[in-house]
Each structure stands twice: as C-alpha cells, then as structure tokens.
Design a protein around this nucleic acid. Structure first.
Lengths: 221, 221
DNA sequence: TAGGATTTGTGCGTATGTATT
DNA sequence: TAATACATACGCACAAATCCT
C-alpha cells in the first residue's frame, strides 16, 4: 500500500518533484513560479499546491510575496558561508552520533556510485554530476540512525546544493577538475567504509564539503 | 512599520501563540485541536490558520490526519534520546561557530534571568520555570551569529522542551531540586560570559542539556 | 497620480476519509 | 454491515497587494 493516491502521497510527489527542479536549476534562483500553471500541471487546484510551496518556503527554497509572486530564493554569500561551516561540522557528527555499520546492500550501492563517478570522469556532464552528488549525500546519511541529524543535514544540503551547482556549471573547465576530485573522494570514502571505519568516512566527507566550498569561492572570485 | 496587520504579521502572531501553548503544555501531547474553533478565536477563516498548522506540523509539533483531526505530537523516548544527543553537540557549536562577544545589553538581560532564577528558587513554579528556561535558551542563541545554527537549535529545543517540562511537573519534589540546579547553572553561565569566555559558557550549557536529560530519564524510570 | 493587469492571501462550500453506533 | 457524525482536504470565487503603463 504505497498510498500514492492519498493526500499525503500527492503532497510528497509534488514536493519532491519541485524540490528537485529547484536543486537541479530547472528553476534557477530568481525564477518566478506560477501557482496556477503548476497546479494545472499536477492536476490539482491551487490549494494543495500551496501547501507544498509553503513547506518549501519554510525550508528556505522559496519565498512568496503577496501581490508579487513565488520566487526561487538565492543564497547570500554570507549565509552560504554560515551554512557550509555548519554542514562541515554536521558531516563529522554523522560518523559519531548513532553510527550505523554499513551492510552489504549499502556497500553495493556505493560501488554503483563509484562506477558512475568513473563514467562521469570519462564524460563530464553537469546534470549527471549534480544527481550523483545528491545520491552520494543520501548514502552518507545512511551512516547515522539519528533521524533529527539526518533531517537537518538534508535540509541544509538541499538549500545550498543548487548554489554549488551553479558555480560548477558556470565554467566548463572547472567541471572537469571538480569531477576528478569528486571521483577520488568517493573512492577514499568507500575505502574507509569497506573496513568499517565510519569515523574516517565522515572525516573524508567533511573534508569534501570544506574543500568544495573553498574551490567554489575561488571560482566566484 | 511593524507590519502586524499584514498577512505575514497575522501568521507570526498565530504561529508564536500556538507554539507557546504547545510548549507550555496548555495543549499537552495527544490533544486534538479544532481548526474551526481556533480560526474563530483568532478571527480568521480556516485557510490562514491551516497555513500555521502546516508549519507546526513540518516542525514536528503537530500531526494532521485526514478524517481524524489535528493532534499535538508526543515524542517517543528513542527520538527524544536522539534529539538530546544532537542538541548537546549543537550547544557546544554555538560557542565555536561565528561567536558573538556579549555586549552590555546581553549581560544586563542575563542578570535579569539570574534574578528570576533566584526568585524561582524562593518560590518554585512550573510555568515560570518553563518560561525562564525558554528565555535562557534564547539568550544562549545570541552567542552565535550563525543563523542556520540558531534556527536548527531553536527548532530542536521547541520540539523537546514540553517533554522535559512534563517530566518536571509530574512530581512536585523534582521541581524544587531542578530549579536549584538550574539556578547554579545560570550563574556559572553568566560568570563565564562576563569574562568573555563564550566557549566556556557553551560548555556549561552543553553540560546543562546533558544533565537535564539524565535527570529526566531517571525521573521517568 | 490613476487605473488596470497579475499575483498571492482569504473565505466558504463541498468532497473525502475515519470512527462509532 | 450500513448509516451517521465530524474531521481534514480540496476547489473556486473574491479580496488585497504590487507593479507597470
């Protein structure tokens, strides 16, 4: 009973779809969304759609202004710095708080991510990179059973992922370098997990976040 | 221009009022709220009220079930453990990430909190204790300029405060002891801040959270 | 300055789901 | 099992705010 037909199911469908569009820059920062058009697309009235928009607004991805419209938010550089500083710390916590030893299934899915990273090195592609980055993040979240930590980390990740993606896609040359660095980091990460060292894996991820941000700021300058 | 008459202002009024009622146990866990009655009370229709309820649901304080009602959530012991573990870590971060040196105004307001703690020791009162605890938490949040950290810490705090409060109010004898311990901790906290040692203050707060939870579990047993 | 076009916010009636008799 | 009561979810029309001409 997947409940895909219930109110909760419809909410989830729309929520994940719109969030993905924002995070993959289908709706880049500054975009003005039309409630009516989106409601038509999803085959519902404005009311349930507005519930979804309200949630995304609470999470900082949208901002609705009376009489103006619903805008995809941008992230100020100062706020971006703060979020990355916090994400860096939270990444380490994921390996320390309620750690979950990786099972065969997780290792297998991580091997899949490594393979995708290799393929990406051979043929760099912004959208594929973005999706792989998301999947890698979600895999990392499986390391902790601390649900509040997962939820918070996820929220901060989805708030800043698109800004990182924007900086990566702005220059073709950086994409190639970034993909290569990412490939090595995923390999290091999986190597640590394979021997069961969650703390080391978390540190690799922490370093990954920190250095991503450093390269991002360098590109922006 | 306080904008209290705008849609955003009305939302904020209702949001803070209802959240406070939940956190001070005016609406204890399990309470079924009536959308219609609350809408009448605030002088609006159900639509804007439901926006508020949706936000509180996103923050884990409420749960709306189609055909059943809007229920004030309880927190399972396992989730409570996880939240406290996380809050303990975040409390320490507040003194390390983007620290804000306390100014005269903050010190003065903290002195006010100390005075209220003293008064509370003389005449223990669950509701006054709960309010003082909230004000102390908000003062602690002023120590960091990291807005995402503030927002997250605040959310976790308001999610578990009422559970702590419930355990304190369940036995009269524990209230007296808890107030005395709190009084000492506030004093230690202010002493650290007065000499500008934010990190020490954060550690005091961290210990406060950790020990509060320990005593809470002991009471529950 | 005024007014029309467009967008979000609100009010309310109805549909749908749940629990109980 | 069916009917009834009552709750949330939804659709739609209108109010209010903003922007542009």
């Amino acid at each position: 009973m997947p409940e895909e037909d219930s109110a909760r199911g419809r909410f989830g469908k729309m929520y994940h779809e719109i969030r993905m569009r924002i995070c993959l820059l289908d709706y880049p920062p500054g975009t003005r969304l039309s409630e009516e058009a989106m409601a038509r697309e999803f085959g519902v009235s404005r009311t349930p759609l507005r519930r979804v928009l309200g949630r995304l607004e609470a999470e900082g991805l949208l901002q609705s202004v009376h009489g103006v419209g619903t805008l995809v938010t941008d992230v100020e550089i100062e706020e971006l710095i703060q979020v990355y500083r916090l994400r860096t710390e939270l990444a380490e916590l994921a390996g320390l708080l309620d750690p979950v030893p990786p099972d065969a299934k997780l290792i297998a899915s991580l091997d899949g991510l490594v393979a995708r990273a290799k393929a990406l090195v051979a043929r760099p592609d912004p959208r594929g990179f973005a999706q792989l980055n998301i999947d890698f993040f979600e895999a990392h979240m499986a390391l902790t059973a601390n649900e509040p930590l997962r939820e918070i980390s996820r929220r901060l990740y989805y708030q800043t992922h698109r800004i990182w993606l924007k900086s990566v896609t702005s220059r073709r040359i950086d994409l190639v370098e970034e993909v290569q660095v990412f490939d090595r980091e995923v390999e290091d990460y999986v190597r640590a997990l394979r021997i069961g060292d969650l703390e080391a894996a978390a540190h690799v991820h922490r370093a990954h976040i920190s250095m991503s941000f450093t390269r991002m700021r360098k590109n922006a300058a």
